[in-house]
Simulated scan of single mutants.
Amino acid sequence: MSIELSRRLILTGAAGATLAGATRAVAAKKEEAFPPEALHLDHALLGPDDGIALLARNENPYGPSESALRMVEYAGKKGAYYPGQANITLAEMIAERHGVDPKQIVITTGSGEALSAIAVLYGPKGPIVAPRLFWDTTALYAARLGMAEIQRVPLTEDMGVDLAGIEAAVTGGTGLVQLCNPNNPTGLVSDSKTFKAAVKRMAAKTTVLVDEAYMELADDPDGNTCIDLIKKGDDVIVSRTFSKIYGMAGLRVGYTISSEETAEKIRGTAMSWIAGTGLAAAIGAYNDHAFLDFSKSKIIEARQTIMDKTASLGMETLPSQTNFVYFKSGKPANEVQKVMENEKIIVRGQYMDYTDWTRVSMGKLEDVERFCNFLPEAAGV
């Protein structure tokens, strides 16, 4: 069995995959948390076709903001040139908001590139310890290359991240701890005091990566973020993205905050160069608080609409602090997905063996209402 080497694998000096690595890659594929999307109706060049309610990707269809679009237009006119100082300018803006040095910021093509780079950096050092359900795509990137093994810790009975179980699994030989807070696909935020205390203790043994892609949507972003641990010198990496509340998933901009030393390692492993359009849009949107407040209000309104509907149908629903809801319909999620697709409504299918749990993203209010109106029929209730 062989594994195709990616450019990043070559750049990081990994000289080919062993048979054992290939075996790990196959095992990783079997343990993927995220199901494939059912997008058979989606033929548009960009985004969904007209008439399709795309509620599967955790996007914010109210974006990009006008402030971002003006900068995209400006960047397009400058498309003959490399971005120049845009990367530095954005890093300085992010650093100023969070009270860190710009050298601690790494801007990448979506947070996914940084997360993949981190998996490649730390995976060879030992297992990546993580919850059983989390956004595992980037950890699997390294696993498929034979460069990482994911050690999954089961969720608690109430579908929360088992911090005690994860901490117990961490040893001196652990390569990385990866957490997602709020978690995906559950939408749950861990208790701030408990979460930060556990992260701090684990960071004394190994690097802890906290994916905060949805943190701006949480009830208390400042109280829940782990950026303050980085400022105190703990071995923690926080990742953020412009794909969610900023509504810029197609423009591909994300970033990490860490120590300067760690940032330099991530920067040296990340492979691509961000387009000027994405950087410009991020600069334009970053401090557009009016748009951010508007987006959050629309997302919360849609989320409450769905949670009211599932409650009225007697469905168990997790208390989300994100732009998606994870609920137990009582019918296999793959069947719900298929029936919904027949009505041009796209939701996620089954995650691992969580058979009848469905994840639905927040879209425009009219699309969310379509979902709610059809849910009783799709779930057979």
Rank of each mutant, 00 (worst) to 15 (best):
D356R: 08
G233L: 04
V153S: 03
M71Y: 05
G110T: 09
N87E: 15
Q304S: 13
G63L: 06
A270F: 04
I257A: 00
I345W: 07
S116F: 05
E260C: 06
A378I: 11
E264N: 03
A142G: 02
Y81A: 11
A56S: 15
V72P: 09
Y214V: 10
L140I: 14
S243F: 15
F195K: 01
D353H: 14
Y214F: 15
R57A: 14
L279V: 14
R152Y: 00
I166V: 08
R8W: 14
T269Q: 13
A33E: 12
K244Q: 09
G254W: 12
Q85F: 06
S312K: 06
A130R: 01
P182T: 10
A15M: 09
V368C: 13
S297L: 02
P127S: 14
D191H: 12
D235Y: 08
G146E: 13
T138M: 12
A148Y: 10
R132Q: 14
N60F: 02
G363I: 12
A119F: 11
S320H: 06
G173M: 04
Q321F: 03
T138F: 05
I105V: 15
G160K: 05
C226D: 02
V120P: 03
V129M: 03
K296L: 03
G160L: 06
M215A: 01
Y351N: 13
K77Q: 09
R240E: 09
V208C: 02
E260P: 02
T256K: 00
D222G: 00
I346E: 05
S312Q: 15
L39S: 12
E212D: 12
V177Y: 00
L11I: 04
R370D: 04
K125M: 09
G250W: 11
L188V: 07
V210N: 01
G79Q: 11
L251K: 02
G233N: 02
D367T: 08
L55M: 15
A27C: 08
M71D: 08
Q337V: 08
A17S: 14
A204Y: 07
I227R: 08
V100A: 04
S259P: 01
G349H: 07
R144E: 14
G284N: 10
G223F: 07
P154F: 05
A130S: 12
G349W: 09
R303Y: 01
G187K: 04
P61A: 13
L155E: 06
E92V: 10
K232E: 15
Y122F: 15
P131F: 03
I237P: 00
S239P: 01
A285I: 12
Q350T: 14
L365E: 13
H98C: 02
P35V: 08
S297D: 09
S361D: 10
N183W: 02
E316A: 14
L251G: 08
Y62R: 10
A311S: 10
S190A: 15
L209T: 00
D219K: 12
E260H: 05
L140R: 14
G146F: 06
Q304F: 04
P124M: 10
G84K: 08
E92C: 11
M315L: 11
L188P: 07
S111E: 11
A25E: 12
E37L: 13
F34G: 04
V161Y: 00
L55Y: 03
A311W: 11
D50P: 06
T317E: 03
T23V: 15
D356F: 10
G112H: 14
R303D: 01
T109C: 10
M159V: 05
G380N: 09
N373Q: 12
R252H: 13
